[in-house]
């Protein structure tokens, strides 16, 4: 008896195939393999941000979520685990990558397990994941696995990268198998900040007893 789980890969790589996508793929494959040992059947969905570049730019300047972007948001909303992978440009994550995550509702990804990964042309960018990307995912209240992945050119021939991919994948599977996201959302969803229609349009609860609601109904501030 196995449980179905959904892994969503987000890649901000630009060539096809890109090393950024390749790195995410390798994590996803390991997650699927390790999942079997935990009685998890892991389905994999891929979001290639380059295909959403126009809609991401539009959403940033006009709040207008295009159809492809909406599909990506829906996929993330239902994800049990996420692998987020980006190239490093000018000592930071790709603007396409950060823009995409900046558009999402603050509560869309609460408690979701995430593997972070980055690729670069030089090992000098190695700390981008831990120093920069973790902050964004902490803001989104995700739980990022302890092992960050980074691959510079030389890492692709280094067996050390495979070991780190194994570690990160196992950490993600452990969090998915433990049901961390479900526990947090079931027991504590109301303790996070939400707006009407947030969480990708699914958060529709309204506290009719709040001070503002009482004021709206003719009460005192």
């Amino acid at each position: 008896m196995t449980t179905q789980k959904q892994l969503v890969m987000v890649s901000a790589g630009t060539s096809d195939p890109s090393s950024t996508r390749l790195l995410a793929d390798r994590v996803a494959q390991r997650v699927a393999t390790l999942g079997v040992q935990k009685q998890l059947t892991v389905g994999i969905k891929t979001i290639e941000l380059r295909e959403l570049a126009g809609e991401i730019a539009n959403a940033l300047v006009s709040n207008h979520i295009g159809p492809k972007l909406q599909k990506a948001i829906d996929a993330l909303q239902h994800a049990d685990g996420i692998v987020a992978s980006t190239p490093v440009y000018k000592a930071g994550a790709s603007g396409l990558f950060t823009s995409f995550f900046q558009i999402l509702d603050n509560d869309l990804l609460i408690a979701k397990p995430v593997v972070l990964a980055a690729t670069a042309g030089t090992a000098r960018h190695a700390l981008v994941v831990d120093d920069q990307m973790r902050g964004l995912f902490a803001y989104l209240r995700t739980v990022v696995v302890p092992t960050s992945l980074f691959a510079a050119t030389e890492d692709w021939t280094d067996p050390g990268l495979n070991k780190r991919i194994d570690r990160a994948a196992l950490e993600l599977v452990a969090l998915i198998a433990a049901g961390f996201e479900k526990t947090v959302r079931d027991d504590s969803w109301g303790r996070y900040q939400h707006e009407f229609g947030s969480a990708g349009g699914t958060e529709l609860s309204i506290d009719l007893d709040s001070d503002l609601m009482k004021l709206a109904a003719g009460g005192q501030a």
């Binding site: 730019a57 300047v61 006009s62 207008h64 979520i65 295009g66 159809p67």
Partner: peptide, 16 residues
């Protein structure tokens, strides 16, 4: 103002 320089008009018509 507001939505210019953003979505294509056809997309905007489709979604709004």
């Amino acid at each position: 103002p507001v939505y210019g320089h953003g979505p294509k008009m056809e997309d905007f018509m489709e979604m709004t």
